[in-house]
Design a protein around this nucleic acid. Structure first.
Lengths: 215, 215
DNA sequence: GGTATATCGTGACACTGGTCACGATTGTGC
DNA sequence: GCACAATCGTGACCAGTGTCACGATATACC
């Protein structure tokens, strides 16, 4: 982990802060499918994503999981900041869906740097803000929208984060992410393909034109 | 607005900060039913609740509103901090449900104090954290629970915030808050009263024993 | 090639919850 | 008392979606 690597993804942090970070933080590399944060785990470090993509889920006591949002390079897990400060456990799960490098910062520094480096405080705040907005958007969808609209939104988010029209995710996994069932996704996907919005292939979906879903 | 009043509700803020706050902030008093924040409004000040109770809603473009949480004395509207900093508009609505006194802090100070007063930065962060947790809890309910459980949770929150077993809210309003319909609430309430969990009176509900709802 | 596994399609059915229609009850203002 | 509004109850119906059952197809591994 070099200062350049961090500075590139987190340009708003002060050089001195980055120097200190290199000294005290760990670089952790996760492989595709690895869990960064497990439900119920006591979180002891804040997490900044240097590279790769991480999926954040909410999990309830019955083991239902619900996809909330992606974190990519330059983003921080707001929940890890929350829990780091409070030493609390969380009902959250973070999973690497590509190979991912993250900077892991021990609890005490998260707090200490808040007063010491203005850039850090601003970074933490804007992380909260962005995650907060995403949560609100998520609430909108589950509160006000039907499954068909939510599915389109799901595909759209994937398209935006991966910059590709190929979604290599099985219906089963999509169903889990949306807290639905495979059969429902299957039915809705059929409708989307009939409308020419997507093309279905085995184990992957090709997005043709999501705009058309508005009609 | 005196320093004592503020210090009483916000004991963690530095005396110097409170002095400055008295100088630059406004005290606004809202009557029951008044809107503090309107959907789509550009928010120009952060809001701290000194007294009374405020209800926070999410509203979508079709005018559906969805109750998220209460703010009481000593709490801040995290969204007003968000939007204050970013000068953005929000899809949110804040309504006074009792007579409420709030401290209204112009945008520029919200940001300035973040570096100047450690107590302020910590207060802002912990506001985010608490609101974030509440949002997660809200997501749990709409994602994983049925309307009957959500209704019980709604009553429970009211009981906790108001410290009373009398809920003076019409079925129509509860239905709006839960993004449901009056008839559904009516049916579920009947079940709850048959189980002895609540007693129904005109325009108000008496909570008898919410614990029993678990069975 | 053959077997196991993952993935997907689909019809039948049930349940939750939203909508409609109508009426009953209670409170309010005159 | 009387008109009116707000509140609540309830039956009928329907749409969305979760569940079950079963089969079809593709992929992976031996």
């Amino acid at each position: 982990m070099t200062e350049q690597e961090i500075a590139k993804q987190f340009p708003k942090l002060e050089p001195e802060l980055i120097q200190e970070m290199v000294k005290v933080a760990d670089l952790k590399v996760f492989q595709e499918g690895d869990l960064l944060i497990r439900t119920g785990q006591n979180i002891r470090s804040a997490i900044l994503v240097l590279d790769g993509l991480v999926k954040i889920y909410r999990e309830d006591d019955q083991g239902n999981e619900f996809f909330m949002y992606y974190l990519d390079a330059g983003k921080a897990c707001a929940i890890s900041l929350v829990c780091a400060l409070g030493s609390e456990t969380s009902g959250l799960m973070a999973k690497a869906i590509t190979k991912a490098s993250v900077v892991s910062i021990p609890v005490q520094y998260v707090d200490e740097w808040m007063g010491k480096y203005k850039g850090w405080a601003q970074f933490a705040l804007s992380s909260y803000r962005e995650r907060f907005e995403e949560l609100l958007e998520t609430i909108d969808h589950i509160a006000f929208r039907n499954m068909d609209e939510r599915l389109v939104f799901y595909l759209k988010r994937h398209q935006e984060k991966f910059h590709t029209n190929i979604v290599p995710i099985s219906f089963t996994e999509i169903a889990q992410d949306l807290n639905s069932s495979r059969e429902v996704i299957s039915r809705l996907m059929k409708k989307l393909s009939e409308k020419g919005i997507v093309q279905l292939h085995r184990s992957q979906i090709e997005i043709i034109d999501l705009q058309r879903a508005l009609s």
